[in-house]
Nucleic acid binder design. Structure first.
Length: 887
RNA sequence: GCCCGGAUGGUGGAAUGGUAGACACGCAGGACUUAAAAUCCUGUGGCCAUAACCGGCUGUGCGGGUUCAAGUCCCGCUCCGGGUACCA
C-alpha cells in the first residue's frame, strides 16, 4: 500500500482533536509527573520557520515517550504576543495590534497543529490577553511591595520593613523615600539607552557591543528619563549559587555566571589632601596598595568637580562635558587611546601615607564599583597603559613568578605589566606598620584586608556586574503598569481588585520623539481623580516583552483560573519544569529574568520551588545553503544552479561557491515548513529535523536529506501495511535481537535527547525486517510503539491497521528483554602493535589464557609474529586482543 | 583581549580510551519500465597492488606527549562559531 501521508496525517490530527487525546490529566495523584516546556514563540507575521519545529519536535517526542512510560504530562503551547512588529504595523496601517496579533497566532496555531504536536490546546495562553496580563501586573505589584532582606537573603513584604528611628524622625517624606529605596521595583531618573529609530529605551542587555540596538540595528544614544527599574542585583548571589544545582548545559551556566560577574575584593578609603571628603575605591587587589601611584575618578562621580582645584577647573570641566556627550560606545571605541586629565588634587595612600595624584578619566565607569579606582600600573594593564601615556610613576611591588630573566628584569623595573602572582617587594612601611613583603597574592590580599578592617579604612567587599534592570518601554503594545502618579508626587500601585488595567483604544500609535509613550495621547485613559479630588496620571510606559515570558510557565499550570494566578495545589504538583527547550539566544536575559521573578515569588510563598527550570536544553540554529560569487558577494539562492556538484549562476553562468548562512529573505534561502509538510508530510519533517544531527548543534538544512527519512517512513509503512509480512508463530532470533537492541537504544537516546541516533537505530531495524521479509505481530506492535513518538501519524495508522481501536499514545513503552541481547560468540579484533590484522570469533565465556592460545596458533598470526619478538599480549574480554611485538 | 563551544569521507553526521566513518544524502553500476519518476539490489575514505581474489600503506585541523591501544586523555598552536567588552 502506498504511503499516503497527507490523508493519514489529516485523519489522525482530527482524531486527536476530537478525542482530546492530549488533554492534561486532571487527577494529580500519579507520583510520576513531567512538565515539558518549549520556549513559546513570538508569533511573527512571517509564520513558522523550520527552526521552530526543531525544539517543538524534540519536546513532543519526549512528551509522547513519557506518556507511554506512565507519566502525567503537562505539555502546553502559547504566544509571547506583545512586541514591536505588530505595533510598527499599526503605525504604518492603522490596524490595531490586537488584530495583527490574532491573525499571526491563528497562522502559527494552524501550522503547529499540522505538525502533529501533542499539545493540550486547552492550556493555550497569550500574553496579550487581559486575563493573562492581569497576573503580569499582579506580579509587578508584588515586586513593588517587596524589599530584600540582606541578612536573610530573602525578599519580604514591604509591610515587614522596619524603618530606622533616625529616618522616622525626619518625617513622612523621608520615610516614603526610605521605603522607595528598598522596593524591588522603583521609579527613578535613569541614564538610559535610547533608540531614536524605535523611539524606545533599551536595557543594557539589548544594546549590542557596537552600540546598536539589538532589535533594529540602529545606533542608540544616552538619555536621562524617568523609568521603572527592578533591583535584580540584590538577588545576584542567589541567582549565582542557584546555577550550580541546575541540569543545564555548562556553557549556558557559564554565561549566566559571567553576566552576574561576581568579584571579590575590598573597598578602601582614601583621604583627600586638604578636604574632609573621603574617596572610596573598590579593588580586587588590595594587596597591591603599595603599588598605587595615582587614582582615577569617573567623570560622572559626584566628587569630581568638588575635588578639582581652581587651576584645573576649566580643563576638568571640559573633559567632563566631552565625556558626557560621548556614549559608552565611544568610550569603549577609544579604549585603544586612553584619555584623562589631572584634577590638581592629591589623595593619601593609606599604606604608606604618600601623596598620589587624582586624575579624571573615562576608562573608569561610574556604574561599577564606586566609580573611582586606585591605579596600580605595574600590576594592571589598563592602569599601565594610562601611566605610560601620561608619564605617571610605575612601581613594581611583586617579584613575578616568571622564568625568563629578561622579562623579570623588565617587570621589576616597571617597564612591563605583571598581573599574575609573585612575591611582594617594596611592600612595607614603618609609619603605618604594615608589611606583606615575601608573601604571595592570596596571603597578601588576606593580610592587607584584615589590616584595612582593623584600621577602619576599608573592608572586604563583593561586587557584581549585574545592574538594575530597566523595566519600562515607551510603547503601546505592552502590559500597562498598574501605577498612578499623583499630582503631589506620590506614586501608587493599583489595588489587586482593579486589575487588569487594559490598554485604551488609540488613533495614533506613534510614540513621541522625546520619549513619551503613545499612551500619553489617550487623555481619557490617562487622567484619574480619587475620591478626595486629588488628580493623578496613569503611568504611560508599558512593560518590556520580557515581562510576559518571565512567568508564563506558571500560568500554563492553570490558565483559565480567574481568581488566582494558579491553584497552588496544581502548582505544587507540576512545578518545577522538568524539561525546557529553546534557543540559546535566551541563555542570559530571559532565563536570568525569569529565575529572578521566580525567586521573588518563592520568597513570598507564592511558588513552591526555588528554581523554575530543572533541566534546560538549547537547540542549535538551523542554517541553510546560500551562494556567493568569486568576489564574495551573496547571490540569491533561486538563481543558483547545481551541475555535477558545482554551482553556477543561472543568469551569467559564473561559478558560485556554496556556503552555509542564516536563512534570510534577501538570500532567498528560507525553508518554509508548510512546503515540506505538503511535499513529504509532517512525520518526515519531524523526523528530518531530528535526524539532521545532534539537537544542540548548528546545522544546515538540506532538502535532499528529507528524502532519506521520507524513504525510511515509506519503507516502514509499506512493510507493515502488507498483511503478508505480519505472521504468527515464533519470532526469528535475529529479529528479536535486533528489536530489543533497538528498544534499548531508542529509550536511552530519548532520555538523553539524542534523537538522531535513535532514528538511525530504527532505520537499521527496518532494513533488517525488510531483508528478513516478515515479522510476527508482536514484533510489529513493539516496533510501532517505539516509532510512535517520532512519527505519530504513521504509527497510529499502522496500529489501527493491525487491529487496534484505541490510540497508541498511551500504550506502555516496550520493556527490553536482556535475554535476547545475549551473545554466544564475540568476534575479537586481533591487532598487532595496535593495528588491526584479523578477526576471530570466540565464545564470550572463553578465558584469557585460552584466547591467547587460540590467537597465537592462528594461521594469520604467524606472519605478524615473525616480524619480531613477542613482548606482551593484552586481552580485554569481549573487546579486543592486542599483541605487542618488538623488532 | 577574556570566557565557552567546535574541526572526522564529496555532504549531514556515528563511535563507554579498545574494529574510525554507524545511519542517511550524494555518486556509480544494475533490476523493473517504451521511457522517466518511484521502488528494489550492489558498491562507495584516500592511495597502492591484482586478471580476479588474498592483501598492503595511509587516514579524524596542525605539532608534541601519555598508553599495549588516542577521534576520544594531557601540553602547545591554527582556523571557525557563540558570548562579552576598559567590570578595577
Amino acid at each position: 500500500m502506498d504511503y499516503n501521508f497527507s490523508e493519514i496525517e489529516k485523519r489522525w490530527q482530527k482524531y486527536w482533536e476530537e478525542n482530546k487525546t492530549f488533554k492534561t490529566p486532571e487527577e494529580l495523584t500519579n507520583p510520576k509527573k513531567c512538565y515539558i516546556l518549549d520556549m513559546f514563540p513570538y508569533p511573527s507575521g512571517a509564520g513558522l520557520h523550520v527552526g521552530h519545529p526543531e525544539g517543538y519536535t524534540a519536546t513532543d517526542i519526549y512528551s509522547r515517550y513519557k506518556r507511554m512510560k506512565g507519566f502525567n504530562v503537562l505539555h502546553p503551547m502559547g504566544w509571547d504576543a506583545f512586541g514591536l512588529p505588530a505595533e510598527q504595523y499599526a503605525i504604518q496601517t492603522g490596524t490595531h495590534p490586537s488584530v495583527t496579533t490574532k491573525n499571526n497566532c491563528d497562522t502559527f496555531r494552524r501550522q503547529i497543529k499540522e505538525l502533529g504536536l501533542s499539545y493540550d490546546w486547552e492550556k493555550e495562553i497569550n500574553t496579550t490577553d487581559p486575563k493573562y496580563f492581569k497576573w503580569t501586573q499582579w506580579i509587578f505589584i508584588k515586586l513593588f511591595n517587596t524589599w530584600f532582606d540582606e541578612k536573610l537573603q530573602k525578599g519580604r513584604p514591604v509591610s515587614e520593613l522596619k524603618v530606622p528611628e533616625e529616618i522616622k524622625k525626619l518625617g513622612k517624606n523621608e520615610i516614603v523615600k526610605y521605603i522607595r529605596s528598598k522596593r524591588l521595583a522603583y521609579y527613578d531618573n535613569a541614564q538610559v539607552w535610547w533608540c531614536p529609530s524605535c523611539r524606545i529605551v533599551c536595557s543594557n542587555e539589548e544594546v549590542l557591543y557596537d552600540g546598536s540596538h539589538e532589535k533594529c540595528g540602529n545606533k542608540v544614544e544616552k538619555k536621562n528619563l524617568k523609568q521603572w527599574m527592578l533591583r535584580i542585583p540584590l538577588y545576584a548571589e542567589r541567582l549565582l549559587t542557584g546555577i550550580d544545582k541546575l541540569d543545564w548545559p555548562e556553557g549556558i551556566k557559564d554565561m549566566q555566571r559571567n553576566w552576574i560577574g561576581r568579584s571579590t575584593g575590598a573597598e578602601v578609603d582614601f583621604s583627600i589632601e586638604g578636604m574632609k571628603e573621603i574617596l572610596t575605591v573598590f579593588t580586587t587587589r588590595p594587596d597591591t596598595l603599595f603599588g598605587a601611584t595615582y587614582m582615577v575618578i569617573a567623570p560622572e562621580h559626584p566628587l569630581t568637580t568638588k575635588i578639582t582645584t581652581a587651576k584645573y577647573k576649566t580643563e576638568v570641566g571640559e573633559y567632563i562635558k566631552a565625556a558626557s556627550l560621548k556614549s559608552d560606545l565611544d568610550r569603549t571605541d577609544l579604549a585603544k587611546e586612553k584619555s584623562g586629565v589631572f584634577t590638581g588634587r592629591y589623595a593619601i595612600n593609606p599604606v604608606n601615607l604618600k601623596k598620589i595624584p587624582v586624575w579624571v578619566a573615562d576608562y573608569v565607569l561610574m556604574g561599577y564599583g564606586t566609580g573611582a579606582i586606585m591605579a596600580v600600573p605595574a600590576h594592571d594593564t589598563r592602569d599601565f597603559e594610562f601611566a605610560e601615556k601620561f608619564k605617571l610613576p610605575i612601581v613594581c611591588i611583586q617579584d613575578p613568578y616568571v622564568t625568563d630573566p629578561d622579562q623579570k628584569k623588565k617587570i621589576i623595573a616597571g617597564r612591563e605589566c605583571w598581573t599574575e602572582d609573585g612575591k611582594y617587594i617594596n611592600s612595607s612601611d614603618s609609619s603605618t606598620g604594615i608589611d606583606i613583603n615575601g608573601l604571595n597574592k592570596e596571603a597578601g590580599i588576606e593580610k592587607i584586608t584584615r589590616w584595612l578592617e582593623s584600621k577602619n579604612i576599608g573592608k572586604a567587599k563583593v561586587n557584581y556586574k549585574l545592574r538594575d534592570w530597566l523595566f519600562s518601554r515607551q510603547r503601546y503594545w505592552g502590559e500597562p503598569f498598574p501605577v498612578i502618579h499623583w499630582e503631589n508626587g506620590e506614586i501608587n500601585v493599583l489595588d489587586e481588585t482593579e486589575l487588569p488595567l487594559e490598554l485604551p483604544e488609540l488613533e495614533k500609535y506613534l510614540p513621541g520623539e522625546t520619549g513619551e509613550s503613545p499612551l500619553a495621547n489617550s487623555a481619557e485613559w490617562l487622567s484619574i481623580t480619587d475620591k478626595s479630588g486629588r488628580k493623578g496620571r496613569r503611568e504611560t510606559n508599558t512593560m518590556p516583552q520580557w515581562a510576559g515570558s518571565c512567568w508564563y510557565y506558571l500560568r500554563f499550570i492553570d490558565p483559565l483560573n480567574d481568581n488566582m494566578m494558579f491553584d497552588p495545589v496544581k502548582e505544587k504538583y507540576w512545578m518545577p519544569v522538568d524539561l525546557y527547550i529553546g534557543g540559546a539566544e535566551h541563555a542570559v536575559l530571559h532565563l536570568l529574568y525569569s529565575r529572578f521573578w521566580h525567586k521573588v515569588l518563592f520568597d513570598l510563598g507564592i511558588v513552591s520551588t526555588d528554581e523554575p527550570y530543572t533541566r534546560l536544553f538549547n537547540q542549535g540554529m538551523i542554517l541553510a545553503y546560500a551562494y556567493e560569487n568569486e568576489a564574495g558577494a551573496k547571490v540569491s539562492a533561486d538563481i543558483a544552479e547545481e551541475l555535477d556538484g558545482k554551482f553556477y549562476n543561472r543568469e551569467t553562468g559564473a561559478e558560485l561557491r556554496q556556503i552555509v548562512a542564516k536563512m534570510s529573505k534577501s538570500l532567498k534561502n528560507v525553508v518554509n515548513p508548510d512546503d515540506v509538510v505538503s511535499k513529504y508530510g509532517a512525520d518526515s519533517l519531524r523526523l528530518y529535523e531530528m535526524f539532521m544531527g545532534p539537537l544542540d548543534i548548528t546545522k544546515p538544512w538540506d532538502d535532499k536529506g528529507v528524502k532519506g527519512v521520507f524513504g525510511f517512513l515509506g519503507r516502514a509503512f509499506r512493510f507493515f501495511s502488507n498483511p503478508g509480512n505480519i505472521v504468527s508463530g515464533n519470532e526469528d532470533v535475529e529479529i528479536l535481537k535486533g528489536l530489543h537492541q533497538t528498544i534499548k537504544k531508542v529509550e536511552g537516546d530519548i532520555e538523553n535527547l539524542r534523537f538522531n541516533t535513535a532514528i538511525s537505530a530504527m532505520m537499521i531495524f527496518i532494513n533488517l525486517a525488510i531483508k528478513k521479509g516478515k515479522v510476527t505481530k508482536d514484533t510489529a506492535c513493539t516496533f510501532i510503539k517505539i516509532l510512535s513518538p517520532f512519527a505519530p501519524h504513521l504509527a497510529e495508522e499502522i496500529w489501527f491497521m493491525i487491529g487496534h481501536e484505541k490510540t497508541i499514545s498511551f500504550e506502555p513503552w516496550p520493556e527490553v528483554n536482556e535475554e535476547f541481547l545475549k551473545e554466544d560468540n564475540f568476534e575479537y579484533p586481533v591487532s598487532f602493535n595496535g593495528k588491526l590484522r584479523f578477526k576471530i570469533g570466540l565464545p564470550v565465556s572463553m578465558e584469557k589464557d585460552e584466547i591467547i592460545k587460540i590467537v597465537l596458533n592462528d594461521e594469520r598470526a604467524k606472519k605478524w609474529l615473525a616480524t619480531g619478538t613477542l613482548t606482551n599480549i593484552i586481552v580485554v574480554p569481549n573487546r579486543i586482543v592486542n599483541i605487542v611485538i618488538k623488532n
